[in-house]
């Protein structure tokens, strides 16, 4: 199996505080990989390092074998690293369609066009509509994002990320804040994502993690505590001690 994304001795510190401590991590092509750990373990920091939102203090990041450590965030995105945010980061006053179309237009290069009206770029709109359709959001396309229920806003987060056609998708707590009755919808969407996309999901909802992930990495205090199959992780004494506790049920 090819390696989609890899880090070597990745380290990030803010002064005396080390939030990522020599992380060697790899994500295989088409992976369904989860990153779990207690609050403050450095999960979102790792995502920020991988996407380029944060610069590492040392270490390297490779995207399909190519060193992307020094590339800016936008360039990494264009090479195929997409992400969603833990807290919704949407264009709230714009419509759902506009939210997704902005991402599609960036990928296709339509966003550079200065004169032809955005409305007449059918190729962008068609793709955005198709994406919304696949996530069950067609009926909401012309509504402003801020008028949507929170669970649907989480789906728009995913739709925007997919609009970039990523090869690697980093999902930062896609079900955070979603009522448990609706989280199955998020899981359905995740399960239906194209198999060729390598997915790394950060999530506290263990039910979702154990249903979705085929491999799990446990992070604690900025370092990898262990990595393995869901069964291995669920039965690991250290993981139970630092994170899962009585919640482990697999």
């Amino acid at each position: 199996m090819t390696i989609a994304l890899e880090t070597r001795r990745l380290r990030k510190s803010f002064g005396a505080l080390t939030v990522a401590d020599g992380i060697d991590f790899s994500l295989e092509g088409g992976a369904r990989h989860a990153l779990i750990g207690p609050n403050g373990a450095g999960k979102t920091t790792l995502v920020n390092l991988l996407t380029g939102a944060l610069a590492p203090s040392s270490g390297q990041i490779y995207l399909e074998g190519e060193d992307v450590t020094s590339l800016a965030q936008a360039k990494r995105v264009r090479r195929g690293i997409g992400r969603t945010f833990q807290i919704n980061s949407l264009f709230r006053s714009l419509t759902v369609l506009d939210n997704v179309a902005l991402a599609v237009a960036e990928r296709t290069g339509a966003a550079r066009k200065l004169f032809r009206p955005a409305f007449s770029h059918d190729e962008v709109k068609d793709e955005a509509h198709a994406l919304l359709g696949s996530l069950g959001l067609s009926d909401d396309a012309s509504r402003a994002v801020r008028d949507l229920a929170y669970g649907k806003q989480r789906l728009v987060e995913i739709a925007i990320a997919l609009g970039m056609r990523p090869r690697v998708l980093l999902l930062d707590e896609p079900a955070a804040g979603v009522p448990s009755a609706e989280s199955h919808r998020i899981l359905e969407v995740l399960a239906a994502l194209p198999p060729e996309i390598a997915i790394l999901i950060i999530e506290h909802d263990m039910d979702l993690v154990f249903r979705f992930a085929r491999r799990i990495t446990v992070l604690a205090a900025g370092a990898i505590l262990m990595e393995g199959s869901p069964q291995e992780v669920a039965h690991d004494a250290r993981v139970r001690q630092v994170y899962l506790g009585e919640r482990a049920h697999v």
Partner: peptide, 11 residues
């Protein structure tokens, strides 16, 4: 509207 998100979609 959202600077951070524009960066994150590669703009």
């Amino acid at each position: 509207e959202n600077d951070a998100r524009m960066h994150a979609i590669g703009a």
